[in-house]
Every structure is written in structure tokens, then in C-alpha cells.
Simulated assay, not measured.
Amino acid sequence: MKGIAVGILLAIVGLIMWLTTKEVETPYVSLSKVGLVLAIVGGAEALFALLGLGKKANK
């Protein structure tokens, strides 16, 4: 259950960063790209946690 919550939280924070920091310039990497990566990683983590929870229920 913890993995699902962390994944959803990462996805929400990533989406907020991606949508609100398009015009912010940093020297090395843009914050909107970091937000997009966070959203993708968070979604994947939540999905894998759900799949793991489903496998535990089948046993």
C-alpha cells in the first residue's frame, strides 16, 4: 500500500512541476523535464505496486 501512495504522490508532484515550470530556466536541466520524468516514474511505481498487490491476493 505504501508503494501505491508514494507512486501517486510522485506522479502528482511531477505533473505540477511539468505544468508550472515551463518558463523556468536552469543551467543544466529544465524543471519541466524533471517534472515529466517524476510523473512517469510515479505512475510506473504505482502501477507495479498495484500489480504486486494483485499477485499477493492471488496466492
Rank of each mutant, 00 (worst) to 15 (best):
G7N: 05
I8H: 01
I8T: 11
I8G: 04
L9V: 08
L9N: 03
L9F: 06
L9H: 02
L9A: 13
L10F: 13
L10C: 06
L10I: 01
L10V: 00
A11E: 10
A11N: 07
A11K: 05
A11R: 05
I12V: 14
I12N: 07
I12C: 03
V13W: 00
V13E: 09
V13T: 04
V13K: 00
G14L: 09
G14R: 01
L15C: 11
I16V: 11
I16H: 01
M17W: 10
M17L: 15
W18L: 07
W18F: 14
L19T: 04
L19R: 13
T20F: 04
T20K: 11
T20C: 05
T21A: 09
T21D: 12
T21M: 13
T21G: 11
K22N: 12
K22T: 09
K22E: 15
K22L: 10
K22S: 13
E23W: 07
E23D: 14
E23Q: 14
E23T: 13
V24I: 10
V24Q: 11
E25K: 11
T26V: 05
T26R: 06
T26P: 00
P27G: 08
Y28L: 15
Y28H: 15
Y28N: 14
Y28F: 15
Y28D: 12
Y28G: 15
V29D: 09
V29C: 09
V29E: 15
S30H: 06
L31M: 09
L31S: 11
L31R: 00
S32R: 02
S32A: 14
S32W: 10
K33W: 14
K33Y: 13
V34Q: 05
V34W: 08
G35S: 02
G35N: 05
L36D: 12
L36I: 05
V37G: 01
V37F: 05
L38R: 09
L38D: 10
L38V: 08
A39M: 15
I40G: 04
I40H: 02
I40M: 13
V41I: 14
V41S: 09
V41K: 02
G42S: 11
G42R: 08
G43K: 06
G43M: 08
G43P: 02
G43T: 09
G43C: 02
A44L: 15
A44W: 10
E45F: 00
E45P: 00
E45M: 10
E45H: 07
A46N: 04
L47F: 06
L47S: 04
F48P: 01
F48L: 15
F48T: 08
F48N: 03
F48C: 02
A49K: 03
L50Y: 08
L50T: 09
L50I: 14
L50M: 13
L50E: 05
L51N: 08
L51V: 14
L51S: 05
L51Y: 13
L51F: 12
G52A: 04
G52R: 10
L53V: 07
L53R: 12
L53T: 10
L53G: 11
L53W: 09
G54L: 07
G54H: 03
K56C: 05
K56E: 15
K56M: 11
K56Y: 07
